[in-house]
Amino acid sequence: MLIPVLIGMSIITFSIVHAIPGDPAKAILGEKATPEAVAQLKESMGLGKPLFIQYVDYVKGILSGDLGTSFITKTSVAEEIGPYLAATMELSFAAMVIAVFFGMNLGILAAWRHNTGVDYTAMVIAIIGVSVPVFWLGLMEQWVFAQDLSWLPSNGRIDARMGFEPITNFYFIDALIQGDFVAFGDAFRHIILPAVALGTIPMAYIARMTRSSMLEVMRSDYIRTVRAKGVSEFLIIYKHTLRNAFIPILTVFGLQMGLLLGGAILTETIFSWPGIGRYVYEAINNRDYPVIQSGILIIAFIFVMINLIVDLLYAWIDPRIQYGKE
């Protein structure tokens, strides 16, 4: 599955990128450039060749670990993209932790107190959660928690005045490696607002899926058996029911995680988060083909990998699911 998806993705992104109106050479040289200069630049960027040859060159490059060179910065995309990718993964991961924790517990609570005020309140929260626009939520958070209350910083990954030197570009990991707990705390304070903004929609989806899945399992015969054994309500819910209800929840988790990685542009823009969404967005404005292609391909690759992991987790959660055995 993995290989055909990636080949397909590379063809689609390549085609779309080249179909974008606008000429990168013109974008670089400006409106007043002479046609000769533009043609010369195009030639040097390899854009003069037929599209098919360009695609073959691009794929050859990828296979040898070369994601191309940015037209604008003239540096290798493979080198350049690392910090952006790390920033986005850190943010997405934090958002997912929030989404999973609050979403699942909200869904569990709603299912446990089915058809009561608790259930209705939880589901209203979930509906608001899926419908609230991310940019609005982000701005409101900044307004209330950063500006009015001054509790949390409103943008960036860490206070620049700290002079923090990243190693892996995952700031939390870096801070721990260096034993710098002040930096860790500061990075933590910086990530809260964007993570909440980004995590709200997946939180709501997870809550709804958890609720319906839990309700279905709670009516099953084996939950009645567990109850007949005298097991406590807590274990019935969190051990027996949740484990069985987990597969649909995990599916939503995988899909939402992919969306977070690729769809964090708004959040990253509002909170000045130097992530891959903004990186690719700027590349699109500049017609920076290698960056767009490689950025999208990497996002697609991560998305596919996450869903592969999700598939493997299915088998771990439910012993009835087995792969590769007939």
Binding site: D221, I223, T225, G230, D318
Partner: peptide, 22 residues
Amino acid sequence: RQVRGNEVAMIFQEPMTSLNPV
């Protein structure tokens, strides 16, 4: 919870679905 499974136990009609599959 002290009574169930301890003083009174129960078996059900549907053995196929009465055990937790996971």
